[in-house]
């Protein structure tokens, strides 16, 4: 119990450290964005003093304030969810994030869960028929596909299925001319637009099946499996409660880390499909030197990773009794 509180404390500490780092980068770097902004905007304004106020609106930092006060103000703003104002989109960063995140989550969670579900099933079958043609063919396929970066595959899919065959849209995230809301045409349209991005991530994720295969083969050689067979348990019980459960356990943390890092993958993917999610905005921000937006996406990704790992840690003990009683981190 005590351990859980401390684990949460550690997560909060990590988030605060990242926010502090972002403050340091914005405020203290030589030629930092705040100074650059004031230098750029200042001369255009009648009242140069106003440049400092604008800087505070955009970046939550007023360069005239002493460092410690600026820091406290910055942190207070960030914790309250005020991440400044985007210069290129001319909208609050928090609002842009709130609008973009669901789309990214939608695409990436589909890709990750499909990848794991199919990977685990295939891996289990490969282990069951270890050494068969099915096993060697799939192992070869998975190894090849894992070594191809997903964005190469994405470009390939975009070219063939999108442009040449015209089966799927080449960009955008929702159908045009359809009422937004919970109606069937809109829902179908969303899925239709998400297919290529999901497909390119999913096809490229062969690693899960290989991990599952390896884990299952290891579990199949365990003594407790031999004892279970001798005890006369049914094949179904053995497959599900003995092999599958013990083989999937080590992959659980991997899944949680994947959820955390899928935001990172989204950056490239959304750019390729001009899918207006968080990653898309991050690239836009870099292009436009839009520091507030960039730092906003960066902060959100960090928090997402920290939360996913926190959940993984706190729940691992529930699914694996060995971790629960020893109060250890899951990885």
């Amino acid at each position: 119990m005590n351990w859980k509180i401390r684990r949460i404390g550690q997560a909060v500490f990590t988030v605060l450290a990242v926010l502090t780092l972002s403050f340091v980068m914005i405020r203290m770097m030589p030629g930092n964005p705040v100074d650059a902004f004031v230098a750029r905007v200042g001369p255009q304004l009648e009242n140069p003093q106003e440049a400092y106020e604008r800087a505070e609106t955009y970046m939550n930092i007023n360069p005239q304030e002493p460092m410690h006060i600026a820091y406290v103000n910055y942190m207070a703003d960030m914790i309250q969810g005020d991440m400044g104002r985007s210069m290129s989109q001319n909208a609050p960063v928090a609002a842009i994030m709130a609008e973009a995140i669901p789309w990214t989550l939608f695409v990436m969670s589909w890709a990750v869960f499909l990848g794991f579900a199919v990977g685990i099933s295939l891996g289990a079958l490969m282990a069951y028929w270890e050494g068969s043609k099915f096993d060697s063919a799939l192992t070869g396929y998975a190894t090849t596909i894992t070594s191809i970066p997903f964005y190469v595959l994405a470009l390939f899919l975009l070219m063939t299925l999108g442009y040449q065959l015209g089966w799927f849209p080449t960009g955008g995230r929702r159908p045009e001319g359809v009422a937004v809301g919970f109606n069937l045409p809109f829902m179908m349209g969303i899925i239709y637009h998400a297919t290529l991005p999901v497909l390119s991530m999913f096809v490229a994720s062969g690693a899960a099946s290989l991990t599952m295969r390896g884990n299952s083969v290891r579990v199949l050689g365990e003594d407790y499996l031999r004892v279970a067979r001798l005890r006369g348990l049914s094949d179904r019980t053995i497959a599900i409660r003995y092999v599958a459960r013990n083989a999937i356990l080590p992959m659980y943390t991997g899944l949680m880390i994947a959820i955390g890092t899928m935001f990172g993958g989204a950056v490239v993917l959304e750019e390729i499909f001009s899918y207006r999610g968080m990653g898309y905005y991050m690239i836009q921000a870099v292009r436009a030197r839009d520091y507030p937006l960039m730092m906003g996406t960066f902060t959100v990704i960090t928090i997402a990773v920290v939360i996913a790992l926190l959940i993984a840690d706190l729940t691992y003990g529930k699914i694996d009794p060995r971790a629960g009683s020893e109060d250890r981190e899951a990885f």
């Binding site: 407790y224 031999r226 004892v227 001798l230 005890r231 006369g232 409660r241 013990n246 009794p321 060995r322």
Partner: peptide, 23 residues
């Protein structure tokens, strides 16, 4: 399947790992 454990049962060397660790 019925014969084993009902008529003749067995204890072997790997008692340390003879149990499913998650049950």
């Amino acid at each position: 399947r019925r014969f084993r454990w009902e008529e003749v049962s067995m204890v072997f060397q790997g008692a340390m790992s003879s149990f499913n660790p998650v049950m």
